[in-house]
Design a protein around this nucleic acid. Structure first.
Lengths: 207, 207
DNA sequence: ATATAATTTAACCAGATGGTCAAAAGTAAT
DNA sequence: ATTACTTTTGACCATCTGGTTAAATTATAT
């Protein structure tokens, strides 16, 4: 019996995405992927030669989502720097809310550091130098305090990503495991994070 | 031949710690642990009945390190709230620097959420209500802005933990893979993080 | 229709993996 | 020295896992 003629590959990718992101490379099972895709395990190897190859496809996809369209926002001429931060945080938190398991997946797989995927990261990694220079320009103008751009970038990412990556523990510690309360907190952060950042970097003596 | 009479158990734990934290539960191999402990694989099962049991011991230890002695710092009467934050961040970043792989380990294993370890977390999870009430008291006093305590706590943890958990990607994105530069940045954060937090929560109109 | 190429499957395989067992080696007490 | 107990080992096992192969099925072109 045969129902899908051409979307087999897409089925596999979707199934693999779920399995790899949910269980990690080591935890993922080719059989589970085959089952979820509704196909034979041998067909998996027909489309993607090995677990490793299939994984690399999934990882690449995931990493592209993880590396946000920051750059777009920071190229916009119609926003001042603070507005750019606001726009970025809101966009990014929305993306993360849709794909909450991606960051943890990336981080974990990259910690196990097989050079194969490190290479992928290097290829897709974005160039943040424009953002750095924008921050430096703002510092020169005097609108924001003299803080190393890397700290600011890291703080924005940390405050955006960490609450999602660490949501199980955070839920436990902050709300004794109550997921609804934690979801509410996460929703609040769309405004909170950018406010928090801006309050801390803004030069109170400007003008 | 027999060299260690009684420290076998300790050898096992150390070896298992390394293996589990480095490779995760799924990636860890009992054989590797046995080898690293310099013993037979059967002896592993003699001391700890199963991989799962051994893992739970390691996880518990790791989690105790991950959950910092926050509370101690926040009970000190000789520090005002801002000084407490400074002390906490410095202490915590020092602990994390000594055990950089723990947070990622905890987060990843908890994401795979087998109820067995969720139970462990629940048992050891600290009570943060004293910190919450301290923050609320400061808000009432007017020393800090009206921000939900949970956001502040989450931000402190995020800015402390994330740069370490995500160090491979962060190093890649911020410094094109230059680990030394990233290490320098991490060192700077011992002052940066608390300053950044305090600047953002301090009420500029107080008194 | 028929030859050709692409897709799919069932059956298998070798190696790895967590775990067991009975016997050996070591330790301590009488 | 014998007994009794604990610690350690080598050999082994059932199962799982990624991967292969040859044959069957389906699609495509002539």
């Amino acid at each position: 019996m045969k129902m899908n003629k051409n979307n087999t590959e897409e089925n596999i990718i979707q199934a693999a995405e779920y399995e790899f992101i949910e269980r990690g490379f080591e935890g993922a099972r080719m059989q589970a992927i085959a089952d979820k895709a509704g196909i034979n395990k041998a067909l998996l190897h027909y489309y993607f030669r090995s677990k490793q190859k299939l994984f690399e496809v999934i990882f690449k996809n995931a990493f592209k989502l993880f590396i946000p369209r920051i750059l777009n926002v920071f190229e916009r001429q119609d926003l001042d720097f603070f507005e750019k931060i606001e726009a970025f945080v809101e966009n990014y938190l929305n993306i993360l809310a849709k794909h909450p398991h991606i960051p943890g997946f990336i981080i974990h797989e990259l910690a196990n550091n097989p050079s194969s995927i490190a290479k992928i990261v290097q290829e897709i990694a974005p160039d943040i130098s424009p953002i750095k220079s924008q921050i430096e320009a703002e510092i020169t103008k005097g609108t924001i305090l003299n803080i190393r751009p890397e700290h600011i970038i890291l703080n924005v990412l940390a405050m955006s990503i960490f609450p999602i990556v660490a949501s199980p523990i955070a839920t436990m510690i902050l709300f004794n495991g109550d997921k609804k309360q934690y979801a509410t907190l996460l929703a609040e952060r769309k405004n909170h994070v950018s406010d928090f950042i801006i309050r801390s970097i803004k030069n109170p003596n400007f003008k």
